[in-house]
Design a protein around this nucleic acid. Sequence first.
DNA 1: TCGAGTAATACTCAGATCGAGTAAGACTTG
DNA 2: CAAGTCTTACTCGATCTGAGTATTACTCGA
Lengths: 249, 249
Amino acid sequence: MDETSFLAGYDPRDYPAIAVTVDVVALTIRGGRLCVLLVERGEQPFAGHRALPGGFVREETLGEAALRELAEETGLTPGTGELDRVHLEQLQTYGDPHRDPRMRVVSVAYLAFAPSLPEPTAGSDAARAYWVPVEEAKDLAFDHDGILADGLERARAKLEYTPLATAFTGAEFTIGDLRQVYTAVWGEELHAGNFHRKVLSVPGFVESTGETTARGGERGGPRARLYRAGDARLLHPALLRPTREDRVR
Amino acid sequence: MDETSFLAGYDPRDYPAIAVTVDVVALTIRGGRLCVLLVERGEQPFAGHRALPGGFVREETLGEAALRELAEETGLTPGTGELDRVHLEQLQTYGDPHRDPRMRVVSVAYLAFAPSLPEPTAGSDAARAYWVPVEEAKDLAFDHDGILADGLERARAKLEYTPLATAFTGAEFTIGDLRQVYTAVWGEELHAGNFHRKVLSVPGFVESTGETTARGGERGGPRARLYRAGDARLLHPALLRPTREDRVR
DNA sequence: TCGAGTAATACTCAGATCGAGTAAGACTTG
DNA sequence: CAAGTCTTACTCGATCTGAGTATTACTCGA
């Protein structure tokens, strides 16, 4: 933008028309598994394939467009509090000239993290949307496999140095709940004792409510203390993923 | 994008036209100071203000558009090797409806890191572009102050856990050169001995050439060993910035 | 009601890493 | 040649890490 020659000498016909859309990688944890929201495509191209929810940007900010698409597909209503705890952040923008065979489409991808949301209800716009475990979300339409992969990598990385994991839990949670989030997103078991120690030692990550759960775990064990998210926006020290040498090179 | 209703029921007149541009935050180090490439605006709006280089996206990928804009403004030619060592990555996309008073413009911002490049030569397109120390780059046109701030924060963070600093040096460099990059970007002095130890202990960050500099430093000191960039893409362990509590909350 | 299994929490310990400081040379300029 | 600079190496105590053990409170099913 902002060419000095914007007015003098700019002719819209010199440039191909470009459509701007948003796509949303919405992640949640259902039954201990990391899931992504997908929609079923009815029309060509990619009819019968699944895709990330998305649509054209209207007279709104890009973030508003992403939240609107998310609301439409989940059947939840923004403003009623149902989506208040959703964390939304911009992921990346995809603009290869031929990523959509019909025309030039530049898509701004967003990443959304939500506590376990209900299955989208039938009868609405959202009838064709559902949650899919991320390992099963393959062969998506357009370049959405790549967008999903980028979103997952971002989510995994942000768990290390931000309190993002609390966006996947309810307002109150146990350290075990938090560990399950890390386990689901990273796909690796974590040492319970060390995780406990590290979470409590990071200033501002969690704060105690003074309460405990009403019951022990489903399969036994003592009642766990309850915590809520603290005020830290970055974790110091960070909770690093178990080192995988192959990630480094 | 990729609404199932794309063809059935899509009328372009339902949506406002959106222009797509790229803006480039190009950073280099000149004389020990971190500098950004700015252009002087001749026309309204923001005539007389400085802005980030940028322009409309043509029939090319977004990254190609960013590299083309960078080449045009620096007067360097892509393909001749002059820009080969430039590291380019997408930063973020800015699309607030009124960020440009003339029309709806969505701008994809890129971040470029380069070894010390020459001052753009007069006589070309680039006559109005020049390098400015980042502390002096204020009061830019449009929302470019914010874009620059985002770019700087990204650069500072990536220095911690990627070998990005080598993108600012020549192909061969001393540990002292590398430390100067960190000092310039972070704006903080680093303990020379500890920095030396840490850089050499990170696998794949640098590899020795076996050579040394021909002379000692300008103000004395022994000849330093020369290194080139290694094959690591992530630094393990990371070189963390000196802890600043106020960055955390 | 009891016994086995599970999970929350606390602890120990050895090894890695950290920041800060000291030190020995090698080289510059004046 | 003297004074100052810079690279490189080393030391030290504090902190953080992963791995393991221990204790205890709870669940379920027999």
